[in-house]
């Protein structure tokens, strides 16, 4: 019984990490209907940027994350403004192929720069710290922080979306990009801004990715799959749904892993396909679209 609760609890906390992976993806899909196949690799890129800042420049981890977030914002902004904006349109093939090419480029660039070795971000004693919940249950501090951060990020993104002029513009462009221009909104800049914000979220995800487990240049696509599964399970266009999707995926994976380590990934994917069969639009689809 206790171990059953423990498995679910660990799964929920793991879902926080997947929610973080997915939040950026969900944001840019919501604003510009762009499906970014390089999202996972961009998260891994952010993790390597943090690593390089810590190891190369000797920055403390929190400062390195802030610097990396700024750098990734610029990367996202420029990438969207200069490259991706040119491919947006009714045909989804060009952006999909382009981001796939980008994914291959980033993976192999990282491989060339950092080798295929597994790396980890060091958070000192925090990594092993845990909080006892009584009854033999305990949760790690890092997983708990991951989950809390995922909730905080989603609250913050929702505040931006529903309380600011920028969020208003994001929603308007998402509804109707042509009419949005008549409001004086420059779609190109707004899309670039959305990608920049998504990359800041990706950097936060990268921090927890790197502290919780090892990473190497090849793991981006797998993170991308988890992120997509979370978004689709949750229902397109809802950030809380995305977190819920992450939790479903996380729980399925930890339950699978408790049966056999080999079953962790398979159980997650099967849960995703099962949700598709039952609720093809996910659990919390947005009314419009």
């Amino acid at each position: 019984m206790v171990s059953g609760i423990d498995i679910v609890l660990q799964g929920v906390l793991l879902g926080g990490l997947y929610g973080l992976f997915a939040a950026g993806l969900s944001l840019i899909f919501g604003v510009m209907r762009l499906v970014n196949l390089a999202h996972g690799d961009l998260i891994v890129l952010a993790a390597f940027v943090i690593l390089a800042l810590v190891n190369g420049l000797g920055l403390p981890l929190p400062l390195a994350v802030v610097v990396a977030a700024v750098a990734m914002f610029v990367v996202g902004y420029v990438l969207q403004y200069v490259v991706l904006n040119r491919t947006l349109g009714r045909d989804i093939l060009p952006p999909l192929l382009l981001t796939f090419g980008l994914s291959i480029f980033i993976q192999n660039g990282l491989l060339e720069a950092f080798t295929a070795d597994s790396r980890r971000l060091s958070a000192g004693d925090l990594e092993t710290a845990s909080i006892a919940l009584g009854g033999g249950l305990a949760v790690g501090v890092v997983p708990l922080m991951t989950f809390a951060t995922a909730v905080a990020v989603i609250v913050a993104l929702n505040q931006v979306f529903y309380r600011t002029a920028m969020g208003r513009a994001f929603r308007a462009v998402s509804d109707d990009p042509v009419t949005a221009q008549l409001m004086g909104i420059d779609n190109r800049r707004l899309f670039a801004l959305a990608m920049g914000i998504a990359m800041v979220v990706a950097t936060i995800a990268a921090l927890f990715l790197g502290v919780r487990a090892n990473f190497d240049p090849s793991i981006g696509p797998a993170r991308l799959i988890f992120a997509f599964e979370a978004v689709i399970i949750g229902g397109l266009g809802s950030l809380w749904g995305t977190l819920a999707g992450g939790i479903v995926l996380g729980v399925a994976q930890t339950v699978g892993a408790s049966i056999s380590p080999e079953w962790q990934l398979l159980a997650g994917h099967l849960a995703f396909l099962a949700v598709l069969l039952v609720r093809p639009r996910g659990f919390f689809p947005r009314a419009i679209d």
Binding site: V83, L98, G101, I104, F105, N108, G109
Partner: peptide, 9 residues
């Protein structure tokens, strides 16, 4: 492979 990715882009 980087070149292939870049060429595709």
């Amino acid at each position: 492979l980087m070149l292939l990715g870049l060429l595709a882009v």
